[in-house]
Design a protein around this nucleic acid. Structure first.
Lengths: 205, 205, 205, 205
DNA sequence: CATGAATGAGGCTTCATTCAT
DNA sequence: CATGAATGAAGCCTCATTCAT
């Protein structure tokens, strides 16, 4: 059966299929056959829209980059300048990030798994993406240190690592089948942890 | 040239080669050819010791599991029972973990990258491994809550996620080429963060 | 853009494009894509005029056959009957042939290169063409033998081979990039050679 | 069924198969499948000995180059210095060339057909080969002119073209199915033609 | 135990051809 | 008539695995 679609729709459909397949099998194991059978499309059709397997991968990345950039833009617009609302701003921010990664699980899987080892071109993209993200967080930390909310003895870079590490871990664990923790409760604990650490109040040493 | 070695030595040599190759190219891209040429061994010899490519992979995993289990055993032996030394015990523990991951970079790379995409059998192994690890940490947290060092309002599971997330993130960032942060200073910040969170002292809201 | 042309013009345009492409890349490597992009025509349009790739090839051949037949007709009309002008008639004839091949280099390239490898149907056509040509030459030789211009101890078939071999060789060498010999001087040497061979006058053995 | 051969034998067998297939279908149309099924060998075996289709082609060429060079060496050793035997030397030479081409029909077919259009690397090889050959013939002509056997008013380059053109033509016609002319009689006519041209004795104009 | 030639399934890609618009 | 998206057979090549030596 032969369905004719306009170029953009077909391409998007193929990218969708590629995301699905690559998320579940990884880039290397995902074959063109997998992708086209997922997209219910003939072999030749694939090559009408992508010049190679690597090419779809780039398209997949592009998709994520765009979503990510939109996410970062929203985030950057968020203000921590009002001391009274720092806490709730932060809460919103964390929730938004978790929601973002939850919504685009498949993409996150691909991006965070294949970070290396596909091609140098891609690696660069991937790092730029992450760097943009980290840069934003670092900056946020610095701002919070300036307004006196965050201790100045902690390296922003370290906090950044802590933040992103936890985030990614949560994402990946949520990605992986199994009981997914409740986002809201995670964020509440996170905030509590961020604010006061783990130390119990009575401990005196 | 025809060198004769005893079974175990040959097998270990092949696992070494496999680790090296898989760490740098990933499981899929690592070919038997790569492995045997790294190990300086004939093609047939490989299949004398492993029944398939997946089989070496399992052997690689086994290697990591053993190292990991040893690491966990040492860790488990560590006591947090003396209130006066909780802090330094924790510091030692964190440093040991970071050192462990640093020492076995190649294995960490393989284990954390290919977690999903290889085969269900493997995935199970991998999870068991991580679970063993998480279980230990969770338990440690619980103990620390019991002795009153750690706040009881934080879910051990969450702290666990935070701990492992940060750990993995540090490991992965250190794996990836780039300026590697100094382990000792990371640990010091980590402890400070764990103890008191990020909140500056003067902040009153 | 959608240009509407009458059938014959479109077809001729496509044959032109096919000749150009096939001459430069050979039949196999010339793709329909090459041809239609050379002709600035849509893919479907091609199949409106030709049933297959082989079909254009036949059309290309037909084009050459027609030109060739015209050439042969002119040639046949040429008379060698006047003993006084045999020499100049022959000179004209050789020049005309060389000019013909020079003018239709592209076609010559296709015809003489792909002679075998395309399809039996084509081969037959190609041979018929060459045979027509050879037949004419043979006949011419016979006539020249009859009027006593050419030695009767030489087999017309052999002379034919010599004539066509040299001709084709010149054509092909001229087709292939490189310094193209001057047609007129070639013909003059040719005539001299034909008339008297290579033997120097003084040689007595 | 699995037959194990030493590397050289297998490679030679595959080159043989490639020659056969390429001679009958041309380089482009000859598929790896054709070659391996001609050689009764598995697909992978082919790539054990050649890195690509082009690579076999080069091997085929190499084969011809070697044969050709041997042929040229023999030829170069031939002396035309004794005036009494110039005629018979020439006869021998022509016969040897014809025999050479007859013996290696398939290779000749490939070499002279695909001269162009395969790859620049090959083209260069091919031209070097022909040039070596032409150079030898040209030199021979010059020597014959020096000793006074051949007229000095004929350009050696032209005679060269005539000689090679005729040769190639004969070869190709003999390659092509059909009544193959008798080599000896061809050579005799050739010599007669070379010596005295076509002009009948009595002709006076 | 060790070797490496041989195997063939399967992956990526091209391209002649079809057909809905 | 014209268009160009869609199709799928077939080509090239890789590589895990086998087996005769």
């Amino acid at each position: 059966m032969r369905t004719i679609l306009d170029k953009e729709t077909r391409k998007a459909q193929l990218v969708d299929a590629a995301i699905k397949v690559m998320a579940s099998k990884g880039y290397r194991s995902a074959s063109i056959s997998d992708i086209i059978s997922e997209a219910q499309v003939a072999r030749g059709t694939f090559y009408l829209h992508f010049s190679s397997k690597l090419d779809v991968f780039h398209a997949v990345m592009d998709r994520y980059v765009q979503l990510f950039e939109a996410r970062v833009r929203t985030e950057v617009a968020r203000s921590y300048d009002n001391p009274l609302s720092v806490r709730s701003s932060m809460r919103e921010s964390l929730l938004d990030w978790l929601r973002f990664f939850s919504e685009h699980k498949d993409l996150a899987k691909i991006v965070f798994r294949e970070a290396n080892a596909i091609d140098p071109d891609y690696e660069e993209r991937c790092y730029k993406l992450l760097e943009a993200c980290f840069a934003h967080w670092r900056e946020a930390v610095v701002r919070l240190q300036k307004i006196g909310f965050v201790r100045r003895d902690l390296d922003p870079e370290f906090l950044n690592m802590g933040f992103s590490g936890l985030l990614i871990h949560i994402v990946l664990r949520r990605i992986i089948p199994g009981p997914a923790p409740d986002l809201e409760s995670i964020v509440d604990q996170w905030i509590a942890f961020i604010e006061s650490g783990v130390k119990a109040k009575g401990w005196l040493l």
